[in-house]
C-alpha cells in the first residue's frame, strides 16, 4: 500500500526524519510510535504532502505521490487529527461531506454517504446532522472527524494522535470502535501516537521512531519480545511488558482440557482480561466457552502467566 524509501526531511541542520524505509501492507493498521520530537508526525504528514520531503520517495498504491498535484492526492487519502479540525461554520453533515463535495459527487450520493457514515459512527442522523461542531461533546467531535476522513472511501487513512484529546474511558471505546470499523471496511490505516498501550492495542505492526530514525518496525509481539535497542525497551516499560504481552493473545490460545468452577470466560477475551477475572474471583482456573456458548475447556492461572514470560 505504502512504500517509503530513503525518506528524509531536514529543517535547518536537523534531520527531523532521517532516511526512513518502510513498507505498509494494504488492509492493516500500522502504528508509528515515538516521543514528541521523534519525527513521527512529520513522517505521517509527508505521505499526504502536508510536509514536502527533502529527499526520498513515497509510493502510495504504486503511484509516486510527489508527481501528482497535492490537492488531488489529499482527496484520495483520509486524514484525522487530535484536535479534529472540524470546520466550525459548517454543520456535522456538511463537514462529513467535505471531500465528496470537492470530488463533485452528486447530491443524493453525498447525502446517502453521510447518513451511512453517521450510522457507522453511532451518531443519530436526525439528531446530529444539522448541529454545529461546538454543540457536540469531545467524543462526538472526534467521531465526526474520523467519519469526515473516511467519507470518500479512501483506501488509506492517516491519523495523527486521533484519540489524544479524549478522556481515558471514551478513548478505550473509540479505539475498539476504530478497530472494528477498520476490520469491516478494510481501510489501510497509518496512525501516529506517543502511547505504547494504544500502539499495542491497535497496531498490526508497530514502527518505533526516535530522533528521526526508524528504530524498529515489526508486529507488536515481536517488539515486546525482542526490543531492538534500549530506547524501544524503555518506551515499552519493563514493569508493564508482561501485561502488554497478555493483551495480544486470546484465552482461546491458552485453553487446556479439563473443567473448572464458577462463571465461564469467553474464548475471544484477551489473556489480560482472563487474568484479571481469575485474580479478582480468587480462582486458580475458570471454564472457557466459545462464541456459540459451547464449553471448550478451561484456562488456569499458571497457563496464562506462562504466556506472559519473554519468549525464547
Amino acid at each position: 500500500m505504502i512504500d517509503l524509501s530513503h525518506l528524509t526531511k531536514v529543517y535547518g541542520d536537523t534531520a527531523v526524519v532521517d532516511d526512513v524505509n518502510m513498507h505498509v501492507e494494504a488492509g492493516t493498521i500500522t502504528v508509528i510510535v515515538g516521543t514528541s520530537g521523534s519525527g513521527k508526525s512529520t513522517l505521517l504528514r509527508m505521505v499526504n504532502r502536508l510536509v514536502e520531503p527533502t529527499k526520498g520517495r513515497i509510493l502510495v498504491q504504486g503511484r509516486d505521490v510527489l508527481k501528482m498535484p497535492a490537492y488531488e492526492l489529499r482527496r484520495s487519502i483520509g486524514y484525522a487529527i487530535q484536535s479534529h479540525g472540524l470546520f466550525p461554520h459548517w454543520t456535522v453533515a456538511r463537514n462529513i461531506a467535505t471531500v465528496p463535495m470537492l470530488l463533485g459527487w452528486d447530491r443524493k450520493k453525498v447525502a446517502a454517504r453521510v447518513e451511512e457514515l453517521m450510522e457507522l459512527f453511532q451518531l443519530d442522523h436526525a439528531q446530529f446532522a444539522g448541529r454545529y461542531p461546538h454543540e457536540l461533546s469531545g467524543g462526538q467531535q472526534q467521531r465526526v472527524g474520523v467519519a469526515r476522513a473516511m467519507a470518500a472511501k479512501p483506501a488509506l487513512l492517516l491519523m495523527d494522535e486521533p484519540f489524544g484529546a479524549l478522556d481515558p474511558i471514551i478513548r478505550g471505546k473509540a479505539q475498539a470502535d476504530l478497530k472494528a470499523i477498520q476490520r469491516r471496511t478494510g481501510t489501510t490505516i497509518l496512525l501516529v501516537t506517543h502511547d505504547m498501550d494504544e500502539a499495542i492495542h491497535l497496531g498490526d505492526r508497530i514502527a518505533v521512531m526516535d530522533a528521526g530514525q526508524l528504530k524498529q518496525y515489526a508486529p507488536a509481539a515481536d517488539i515486546l519480545a525482542r526490543p531492538a535497542d534500549a530506547f524501544v525497551d524503555d518506551l515499552i516499560g519493563t514493569a508493564d511488558r508482561p501485561f502488554h504481552y497478555l493483551t495480544l493473545g486470546t484465552l482461546g490460545s491458552a485453553v487446556e482440557p479439563g473443567e473448572a468452577d464458577g462463571a465461564p470466560l469467553a474464548a475471544s477475551a484477551s489473556l489480560y482480561e482472563g487474568l484479571g477475572a481469575l485474580l479478582w474471583s480468587g480462582r486458580k482456573a475458570a471454564p472457557v466457552i466459545g462464541d456459540d456458548g459451547a464449553p471448550l475447556g478451561r484456562v488456569s492461572l499458571s497457563g496464562i502467566t506462562d504466556r506472559a514470560a519473554q519468549p525464547r
Partner: peptide
C-alpha cells in the same frame, strides 16, 4: 512537531 507554516517557509 512541525506545522504547515514551517512547510510554507521552506521555500
Amino acid at each position: 512537531m512541525t506545522t504547515l507554516a514551517d512547510a510554507a517557509t521552506d521555500g
